[in-house]
Simulated scan of single mutants.
Amino acid sequence: MQKPHVLVIDGMALLFRSFFATAMSGNYFMNEKGLPTNAVQGFARHVLTARGLFAPSHVVITWDKGMHTFRNDLFGGYKINRPAPPQEMVPQFDMAQELSKELGWINLGVVGMEADDTIASVLQKWEQEAHFTVVSGDKDLLQLLRPDVTLQFTKKGFSIYDTYHEQRFRDEYGIAPQQFPDVKAFMGDSSDGYPGVKGIGPKTALQLIQTYGDVDGVLASLHELKPGQRKKIEEAGELLHVSKQLAVIRNDVPIDVSLNDLYWEQAPASARDFCNEHGYRQVLRHLI
């Protein structure tokens, strides 16, 4: 019997991508109520197009729930430089989840966790029962690759993706996907605002993990490193371990739905009325 094919959507990634795709030209697709809909409609179109491209049997949408997460408690500088979302986007967070529900998709997210953690938890919960296509723009998700997981990173428009399977990752990086957080522990992440080891970039970080396996392996072999590298790592101190904790995507978010709940064939008839009422004309054109 063929396993279910679950399309796992990073809702936040698609929502932000859709917003800025048209906001740059000042087009927010205001509806009759005076509310912007560019992010909402772009998000839904992305999901509907992905469903057509990848032909899943099941669909689930994951979301961040608030800006403060356990990672902020680990490190005060985590994402501290991220600007607040533009005011035209603020109402669209709830609007997108409401539209998602009306279209028949399950929304998942837990306060204090990120969408990435929910994605990992979905993969963990049904790892023996399904195979997965994950749509996102976040390369941190590379650590989740395994034989039954395909990552589709948004690249251009609604239908062009950069596809990663586990073997492609191993060929390109020379390590296992699960070692990717160890690389990030050394190189840090300026976008997320955590430091890694000052003076060690992506190339050196990857070489260290290729050679020594993980953070602990590098620390146990400091005597083998060049004096300059050794000094940088020693000066980083506990920040190295904190950076790894920040880089690791957790897979213990409670998932309180069944796999059957994610089954999706088409939007209910009521979704057309909902889209008409809220001015989601672009979405209407993509519904069966």
Rank of each mutant, 00 (worst) to 15 (best):
R17T: 14
V47H: 00
Q282K: 15
D148Y: 03
Q207P: 11
E235P: 11
L225M: 00
G109C: 10
M12V: 15
Q97M: 15
K156D: 04
T150F: 10
L144Q: 06
L240A: 02
Q229E: 10
F180L: 11
T150C: 07
F75M: 00
D140K: 05
N260I: 09
T49G: 03
E277F: 06
I200R: 09
A130Q: 01
P254M: 06
E32Y: 11
S136G: 01
V248H: 03
D138Q: 00
D64T: 04
S221V: 07
T154Q: 08
E129P: 01
A115F: 05
L219F: 15
R17P: 01
R281H: 15
F169P: 08
P147N: 06
K232G: 01
Y280F: 09
I175E: 08
E129N: 10
H131L: 08
G193E: 07
R272V: 15
Q41Y: 04
D189R: 09
G66E: 07
M95Y: 13
Q167N: 13
T163A: 06
T69L: 04
I255D: 00
R230L: 10
G279P: 13
F20L: 02
S121V: 11
E277D: 03
H131C: 03
V257M: 04
Y173F: 13
G201A: 11
Q97F: 08
L151Q: 01
S243N: 04
A185R: 05
K3D: 10
V215R: 06
M1L: 12
D116H: 12
T150G: 10
P202D: 13
Q152Y: 12
H5N: 05
V40K: 01
W126V: 06
T204L: 08
F153L: 15
P202M: 01
L14K: 04
D252F: 03
P177E: 02
A247Q: 08
V242E: 01
F158D: 07
D10M: 05
W264E: 05
N251G: 06
P227D: 00
L15E: 11
G196P: 12
F274C: 00
S258G: 09
V183P: 12
Q167D: 09
R230H: 12
V111W: 12
Q92N: 05
D94L: 14
G201R: 07
A269T: 15
F93W: 12
R170E: 13
A21Y: 04
F16P: 03
N107V: 06
K33S: 09
A96D: 08
H165T: 15
F75V: 02
A267N: 05
I61C: 12
E102D: 14
Q128T: 14
S243A: 05
K125E: 10
K198I: 14
Y263D: 00
G228T: 15
F93C: 07
F20R: 07
D117I: 04
I119S: 00
I106F: 13
W105V: 15
F158S: 05
V242Q: 02
F186D: 02
H68A: 13
G26T: 08
L284S: 02
M89V: 09
P254W: 02
T22L: 11
N81E: 13
D162V: 14
E129I: 13
L145H: 00
N38M: 02
T49K: 08
G34V: 14
G228Y: 10
I80F: 13
G34P: 00
